[in-house]
């Protein structure tokens, strides 16, 4: 296959960027999208040009490091996969492919197609945990958890923190990401003691990072590579309003 790529190039967050066109030649349909970019980068390197910078690591759809807005979709046109799992057989010979970074104020550009997602870490640091120290915990089977509850918590826990939900949202809202962790821990008995404090701390941090509010469009759910459901946001809102209306005192104590 021979393709034309329109790639966003930007030296860093301080400078402005632009689209640059590249030819991708002799591409095998069995290549992954990132392997296709590897091929382009190898030829750029041979020419002494600077390779295209993009984030990637595990290349099997679980680390959440890869991103890329491909032809107007986070992680490309297919559902339920990350960019590294996208294969070139999805495209046709001669096609022009537009590749952009995640666009959101809370995700400043690092270089070219890579962005800074540390805002996600800071939200998790604000309360995305159960406050237990190592050791001195009860036996793993001490608290039975109904299978449906454990499975539901697991579904929320599969979020890989890639940021596609933010990139897909016209408001750059992070509510799907934040609600996934809140739901996981809110469903499990281990998460109950801090349930209302957690939702308030994490939402406050989310707001502070500059993410927008939910638009109820559902683009996040449609584009999420792990198919995290909108119901997570409903659960988060429910917990948040419960906390604000009836349990706000629980948030005052911030000691650890």
């Amino acid at each position: 296959m021979n393709l034309t790529l329109k790639v966003w190039r930007q030296k860093n967050a301080q400078t402005s960027g632009k689209f640059v066109s590249y030819k991708a030649e002799n591409i095998s349909p069995d290549m992954s999208f990132l392997e296709m970019l590897d091929v382009v980068n190898e030829s750029l390197t041979h020419k002494g040009d600077e390779p295209i910078n993009f984030d990637h690591d595990c290349r099997e759809g679980i680390c959440g490091m890869c991103s890329l807005y491909i032809n107007g979709h986070p992680h490309g046109p297919k559902r339920g996969i990350t960019t590294c799992q996208l294969h070139m057989r999805t495209f046709h010979d001669g096609e022009t492919i537009t590749i952009e970074p995640w666009r959101a104020e809370a995700f400043p550009i690092v270089k070219d197609l890579a962005v800074d997602r540390s805002a996600f870490d800071r939200i998790q640091q604000a309360g995305g945990y159960v406050s237990v120290n190592t050791g001195g915990v009860p036996d793993g089977n001490a608290i039975p958890i109904p299978k449906v509850i454990a499975d539901e918590a697991f579904n929320s826990a599969t979020c890989i923190g890639c940021g596609a939900c933010v990139a897909a949202c016209k408001n750059a809202s992070a509510m799907l990401f934040v609600s996934a962790k809140i739901t996981q821990l809110g469903l499990l008995p281990q998460g109950q003691p801090e349930r209302y404090r957690r939702v308030q701390s994490m939402v406050a941090q989310m707001d502070e990072e500059g993410f927008g509010s939910c638009t109820n469009t559902g683009a996040c759910e449609a584009e999420c590579p792990k198919e995290i459901k909108l119901t997570n946001i409903a659960r988060m809102n429910n917990d948040y309003f419960s906390a604000k209306l009836f349990r706000e005192d629980e948030v005052h104590e911030q000691g650890h």
Binding site: Y129, V137, P138, P144, A150, F154, Q184, L185, Q190
Partner: peptide
């Protein structure tokens, strides 16, 4: 389990 890891049940 205490941390909220959702093991299979």
């Amino acid at each position: 389990v205490a941390q909220g890891v959702p093991f299979a049940r």
